[in-house]
């Protein structure tokens, strides 16, 4: 096989990397947002439970969690390594996203909630129409960071045997004795993915910026 077909083989792992990211990142966002809302607006018990969840998930190396969750998930339901890995990664990132959203909710001043309640909105309406739209804007910059981390951490599912970029690079490296070429190609693809994502989120942040006088 020639170099071009090696590179093509590695690059075709990009689909897996993107797919894993597109499952892990949004599911982490949904879980993270719900847990953040529960943590900020929930009762004492819910607050403690969500805080505990976040502390444990963030206190362990992602790869260790990935293995543990993989064996729990695949032990209870029959899932392919791809799905098990993506879901596990989603759980890992949900804890980080919870903290990002929680921080953003807390930086929207408590007065906004009070003003919303004062015109007769219930708590859910106030969160939906007043708190969350402002939270989103505050959360984009730190969330952009987390998106980059998830793209890069998607490489961890290679340990479960998912044929994504890193897994393929390793195979090529072993079979061709060209580690530099193989891993540089992988690095370049990861870099482009992260770069494009961050740039898109920067653009989104600018588009959503609330106009104000200097």
């Amino acid at each position: 096989m020639d170099v071009a077909s090696f590179l093509k083989y590695i690059a075709s792992g990009t689909a897996y990397t993107i797919a894993v990211t597109l499952i892990a990142l949004p599911s982490g966002l949904v879980i993270g947002t719900l847990f953040a809302l529960a943590n900020v607006y929930g009762g004492k018990v819910i607050q403690r439970l969500t805080a505990l969840y976040s502390t444990i998930m963030r206190g362990l190396p992602p790869i260790v969690l990935l293995f543990i969750l993989y064996f729990i998930v695949s032990g209870s339901i029959n899932l392919s390594p791809f799905w098990a890995g993506s879901i596990s990664l989603g759980i890992v990132t949900s804890a980080y996203q919870m903290e990002i959203i929680r921080g953003a909710i807390l930086s929207v001043s408590g007065g906004q909630m009070m003003a919303a309640r004062a015109i007769g909105m219930n708590k859910i309406q106030a969160i939906r129409y007043i708190i969350l739209p402002q939270t989103v804007r505050l959360a984009i910059p730190p969330w952009s960071n987390e998106a980059a981390i998830v793209i890069k951490d998607s490489s961890l599912v290679y340990a479960l045997g998912v044929p994504e970029i890193l897994r393929r690079a390793q195979l090529i490296s072993a079979s061709t004795q060209e580690p530099f070429l193989a891993f540089t190609a992988a690095a370049l693809i990861y870099f482009i993915l992260v770069f494009v994502t961050n740039r898109s989120l920067d653009a989104l942040e600018r588009r959503l910026r609330i106009p104000a006088n200097p």
């Binding site: 007065g111 906004q112 009070m114 919303a116 004062a118 007043i130 402002q134 804007r137 609330i210």
Partner: peptide
């Protein structure tokens, strides 16, 4: 019951 606050509290977005 309408309420007007010291620090306005308009919805910023």
């Amino acid at each position: 019951i309408g309420m007007v606050f010291q620090n306005f509290l308009l919805f910023n977005h």
